[in-house]
Design a protein around this nucleic acid. Structure first.
Lengths: 234, 234
DNA sequence: GGTAAAAATTTATATTTACAAGTTATTTAT
DNA sequence: ATAAATAACTTGTAAATATAAATTTTTACC
């Protein structure tokens, strides 16, 4: 667990410091040389960690200045790579409708599966996001049952799937593919999302690639975008 | 124009080779050492270029193997960072509804403007995307009038805005922020996109950050996602 | 011919060093 | 006191080098 590359250790540490508020939006991070001293590494190593933070949208870099922590955008943070359940005003609950369970792969939202993924079987679960008492988002997730022991036993209520995968299993998102649709709500969606029939609903299908070969996350999201848009950084 | 960093030169060259088909999807790129020899640079420089290509989703890297060119996904490539007008089956026309013109900033789709951007004034244009004779996408773009001489005179019919900015003005996309909505078509959209009133339409607002300070691209897209979803890589 | 071990190749990580270029703080001259 | 010049600091680029880890190719053996 501790044989992580040094730049990953630094990345996680700084990311944690930003998430915890130790470095607030607008704050400057220590200079690269100060970070080098602190973590006992050289500049290229520190810079790699900062590259990742910048790619994830946590910091802004500009030559001559120190790196500055970015403010997170308003909205329902789903589209961003880093998978931050970004801050919005009200209270957010995430009830689990279908608990994580083993299944046969049926269809991965139209995305092709590799042989290894199909052989491994599928872990399936559904969650709802309720914002200030109003259901805004229905989330169906499928992922292959490879190298994630005891995953099904984990509590998915509060924590982000991506945080769990990254910190517990060293699985990081490297990229992916997504398709967006604006559809009219059918009976099933009406039931969960409390909208009239025919109401415009956003549908997002995603195949999310990870650093681990043959390990993709397949996700379908339905979202009501009345008050808040589905937002994110990229 | 040619004082580009070496890794950017290599990135552009390889990207061009992929775009032109010299390296087809599934093909392996030359090894890092071979690229070093070819471009007379050292491995960190070549690796930086490959890092960028991988981040843009053009190649897949795996330790021990050579980098392999990815296949570009089907659909209307709009969401992706790299901004490729990716291949789809039919014919795609991009008629310009409102030619690039100078304007005062009114509202940047809800995104806040910096003082420098507001002072510079706004270049505004609207384009339609017509796929096999059917209008599927209405595209409103606004960008600050700073350091892009003769931009308004350029032909936006065929080429991608991002390709123009990158190759002509060395403006690269570094990230951004986006909000998605599913809305019901109003009269204005009905007119351009040929849909019934109330038909679900996708709305995408984006603030696209570039490597140049105080230069963001503001874009609003309306899309009919009946046949094709709005798709992209990330 | 097939298999397993060994070698070669290739990417990943990390250090060290150097200089360039942009920003900020300080000093100096007016 | 203000403004310009200078210095100090910070990030960007790039080389040279070394070792580790994963993959592919070759070799040796049966």
């Amino acid at each position: 667990m501790d044989n992580l590359p040094r730049y990953r250790v630094i990345y996680e540490a700084l990311r944690g410091d930003i998430a915890s508020g130790r470095y607030a939006p607008g704050d400057a991070l220590p200079s690269e040389n100060e970070l080098c001293d602190g973590y006992k590494v050289t500049r290229p190593t520190v810079r790699k960690a900062l590259d990742m933070l910048a790619a994830d949208g946590f910091i802004v870099r500009r030559q001559g200045r120190k790196s500055v922590v970015k403010g997170t955008p308003k909205g329902i943070g789903i589209l961003s790579l880093s998978g931050t359940t970004s801050a919005l005003g009200g209270t957010l609950r995430t009830p689990v409708i279908v608990k994580p369970e083993m299944r046969q792969w049926n269809d991965a939202f139209g995305f092709p599966l590799t042989e290894a993924e199909r052989a491994a079987g599928c872990i399936y679960f559904e969650r709802l996001r309720v914002l200030d008492g109003e259901p805004v988002l229905l989330d169906i997730t499928m992922l292959p049952n490879i190298g994630i022991p005891r995953f099904a036993a984990l509590n998915m209520e509060d924590s982000s799937l991506f945080d769990i995968l990254r910190t517990r299993y060293q699985i990081t998102v490297t990229g992916g593919e997504q398709q967006l649709f604006a559809i009219a709500a059918d009976r099933h969606l009406r039931e969960h999302l409390h909208v009239r029939q025919g109401h415009p609903v956003l549908q997002l299908n995603r195949r999310i690639e990870t650093g681990r070969p043959d390990f993709c996350i397949y996700s379908r999201i339905f979202c009501v975008t009345g008050k808040y848009g589905l937002s994110g950084t990229f």
